[in-house]
Every structure is written in C-alpha cells, then in structure tokens.
Design a protein around this nucleic acid. Sequence first.
DNA 1: CCAAACTGGTTGCATTCGTAACTATCTATT
DNA 2: AATAGATAGTTACGAATGCAACCAGTTTGG
Lengths: 145, 145
Amino acid sequence: MAMEILDLETFLPYRLYHLADLVSRDFSRLYKDHFGLTRPEWRVLAGLGQHGTMTASALGEQSAMHKTMVSRAVAELERRRWLARRQDDSDRRLEHLTLTKAGAEAYRNMVPLAKAFEQQMLGRLTTSEQTALTAGLAALERKFG
Amino acid sequence: MAMEILDLETFLPYRLYHLADLVSRDFSRLYKDHFGLTRPEWRVLAGLGQHGTMTASALGEQSAMHKTMVSRAVAELERRRWLARRQDDSDRRLEHLTLTKAGAEAYRNMVPLAKAFEQQMLGRLTTSEQTALTAGLAALERKFG
DNA sequence: CCAAACTGGTTGCATTCGTAACTATCTATT
DNA sequence: AATAGATAGTTACGAATGCAACCAGTTTGG
C-alpha cells in the first residue's frame, strides 16, 4: 500500500484526547465514588467554591460547560441542598447561586483530595518535565482558548 | 469563607480535558463534515489505514476504544463498503478487517487533511513551545498510559 | 474427553450529552 | 408605549457512549 500514512499514536489531537480521557476517568472516581457527583456537578461545586456566588451563565463560561449541563447540575445540587438560588432584584432572569453550609462543607472536603490527585500526577514527572508540560499546555491554551 | 481554594483554570485534569475537548471538537469537523464519520469510525479508518489488516480487539487496543464502539464502527464502515471482514481459518472467533478500495481511497483523502490540521495547530506555537508540549505529553504518557 | 474458564465480538439497556425549540424577561428602536 | 430583538435558563428529543449480559468458539485441567 503505497499511501501516505498517519501515525495515530503520535497524532496530536489523538494524544491529547486520549491522555485527557485517562486522567479524567481516573479523577472522576474521586467525586463519583466519594460524593456521588457527575462531572458537571463537580464543576459547579468547584466554581461556586472558588468564586462564592455566580450565575449559571458565568458558571458555564468559567468551566466550559453547555448551559444545559449547568442547568441540570444546578438542579441536582439544589435538590441535595448543596446550593441555593437567589433571584436578582433588578433582572429577574438572573439567578445568583451560592453554596449552602452543606455544599461548602463538601467543597472543603473535596479540595484536598483534588490537590492530592494533581500532586500525585505531577509527582510522577521530573521537574523539567513538569515545566515542559505546563508550558506546552499554556502555549496551546493561548492560541486555542 | 476561609477555606482552601482550588483554582479550576490551572487545575491540570481540567486544563487537559478542556483543551482536548476544544481540539477534538475542532478536528471532528474534518471527518464529520467531509466524510460523515463519527469519531470511532474515524479511528477505525485510521487504524486500518495505518496497519493494513487488524482484528477488532487490536483496533480497540491501538485506539483506546471500548469494544462496543469498535463493533459498531466496524459495522457501519462495512455497511458503507469501506472495509471487509475475513474469518480467521484457525480461530473462527477472529475477524481480520481490511479497508476496501473505497475505504483506502477515503483514507488517502483524509490523511493530508489530518496532517494539515496538526500542522496548523503546531504552527501557532514557537519551536520551543512545540518541544515543550510534546515533551510534556510524552512524559505524562510514559507515567499514565 | 468433557466441563469450566476464557476470549472475540454483538446486542440491549440505561446514562450522558448536545442541538434546538421554548418560556420568561429585559433592552432598544421607533 | 409597542414591537422586535437579545439574553437567562429550562425542557424535550435524538445521538453517542458504557456497562453488563450474552453467544459462539477455544483453551485448560482433571
């Protein structure tokens, strides 16, 4: 077969996707097994924990989620009483979302686990590998994001 | 709120996933719009184009796909007459898959598009950024894959 | 040999997710 | 004001995916 070949293993989009899938699958056990959260729910929790109060659209922008996913994740976390909604006074389309005590508590428990996961991940790399990785990702983000 | 904060934007699993999602979504237009393929179908095409003849399990391993996805993608490509199955003589559970003329033709058309995409992606980065990126990804792959 | 365990591949079912259409509200133009 | 166009968020539906159960064929150990 005298045709030009594409080597899948070294093809950048494939490598990225595959790695992200592996890591994400691994990480998801943290919030799935320990807290029974889906990925969108975890992201909403993370967003509100980090920023205090946000609207659904702001959440969507910050964590790169489609508004339908935000909507469903918020509904579920509200059902659990992990967050509360408050209507905006001047614009009644807007809802300000905040973690409840229980939600903040869950966030507080989650953060060290997440950081430990990341550390364990980076810990497997040498310092120069870590630098290369973050520099490379940052470069891609600058051009893509 | 005096709690430890996790910064989502710089959290490695999130960054990886988000970038991969952006790139993959962008790249998928190539095989979706031009050839009407799904991602699993594209990967099967790529695997067979690269390796000539493979079994379904080999495809699954090479391209990190669940065997159900391989099975469905193979069925669809067979329906299109882009690949053909041949039973193994000594082990009748095995099927050897090969691209047909039409499948090879599609592959031949696809490869330059994929390479151009990758080049365009890398082209936005400086040489040292490219080196950093591939080194960083390779390091992660060594420890994770 | 023959039952038990294993492997390649398919199918049914439940979950996840994205697109598009919808409701309600707000803004801008006239 | 009144209407047209935008925006926040929800919902309904379809497509993609994963898990588990399954079938057919093969290997292994008594």
